[in-house]
């Protein structure tokens, strides 16, 4: 499938701070692409650059295989950081203005307000909206003109649990219509629940990218003990060709297997060496520990 967005080696420097360092990534058409990273990792900077509001220090990017222009902007709906509207205008007036800036028929405004559940508050001033309503209005504005791509930066920020669930439902609903969604978030669980693809950023560097399943679901951990002294278990494990990593933790040996290797294979290998393991526990890595592992990779 074609890539909606290709980013080639973009960097951004703010004085002495390297906010982004040679980031390259591709967003496939129809994906829900999660941009994951802790606060200050460069997510918003990346999105700001591809949305034309931040000048990159180096690198290029292309939307739909073309450089960004007025016509490509029309095919993108975006919400960057905070909802940005005129506080003294009503929700409806604000969206009408957005529609005109985007060159979209004003008739679509009512529809967008309904989609984000603000139909009955359309006549209220934006400054009177709750945080959740402001966020929903911003999503409504991004939806105007039926864009092919939605770029959402922390769309559930500041929402209560109900609002978060609602926004996620909305995102999945939009994605089910075949649209591509780029979603920046510092919440792992959000990315796991919603996204098909992801990229992990830390300190402006790209740590990993690809389908969520290939990044998160591999490399289960196996914990071993018994049958031999821990030191022997460790040496034996390290000697096995299909063991990616093994170390002593907490009175047991933690083993990371290579992709596609089953834990029973490990058991068999130990038995072949004359060690009957007392205990073998397979633990799916928690998302959080995987995330921490990915972002810590540069310290190793």
């Amino acid at each position: 499938m074609a890539d909606i967005l290709e980013i080639q080696g973009i960097s951004k420097r703010y004085g002495a701070v390297q906010a982004l360092d040679q980031v390259s990534l591709n967003v496939p058409q129809g994906s829900i692409y999660g941009l994951l990273g802790p606060n200050g990792s460069g997510k918003t900077t990346t999105l700001g650059i591809v949305l034309d509001v931040i000048n990159a220090s180096a690198g290029t990017f292309r939307w739909f295989g073309q450089p960004l222009s007025k016509s490509t902007k029309r095919r993108i709906g975006a919400l960057l950081e905070t909802p940005n509207f005129y506080p003294y205008l009503t929700g409806e007036e604000n969206l009408r203005l957005t529609a005109e800036v985007k060159g979209v028929a004003p008739a679509r405004v009512g529809e967008a307000l309904q989609t984000v559940g603000l139909g009955n508050r359309r006549g209220d001033k934006f400054k009177g909206y709750s945080l959740g309503m402001k966020q929903r209005l911003a999503i409504g504005a991004a939806l105007l003109g039926d864009p092919e791509v939605l770029v959402l930066d922390e769309p559930t920020n500041g929402l209560d649990p109900e609002g978060i669930a609602e926004v996620r439902r909305l995102i999945l609903h939009i994605a089910s219509q075949g649209k591509t969604i780029v979603l920046a978030s510092h919440l792992l669980d959000e990315v796991e629940k919603v996204c098909t693809h992801m990229a992990v950023l830390r300190n402006g560097k790209l740590k990993a990218q690809g389908p969520v399943s290939s990044i998160l679901a591999t490399n289960d951990l196996v914990f071993l003990n018994g049958g031999a002294p821990l030191e022997t278990l460790l040496q034996t494990a390290l000697a096995l060709p299909f063991v990616a990593e093994a170390r002593l933790t907490d009175q047991q040996i933690q083993v990371t297997l290579q992709n596609g290797v089953d834990s029973s294979e490990l058991n068999r290998a130990f038995f072949a060496q004359g060690i009957a393991l007392g205990q073998l526990v397979v633990r799916k890595k928690s998302l959080e520990s995987q995330f921490l592992e990915i972002i810590k990779a540069d310290h190793a």
């Binding site: 949305l51 029309r74 005129y86």
Partner: peptide
């Protein structure tokens, strides 16, 4: 300066303004 305060300048550039 309102456009900076409300960040609407940024939004309008995102939405299609040059």
């Amino acid at each position: 300066s309102d456009e900076y305060t409300f960040r609407t300048l940024r939004q309008q550039v995102i939405d299609g303004y040059s």
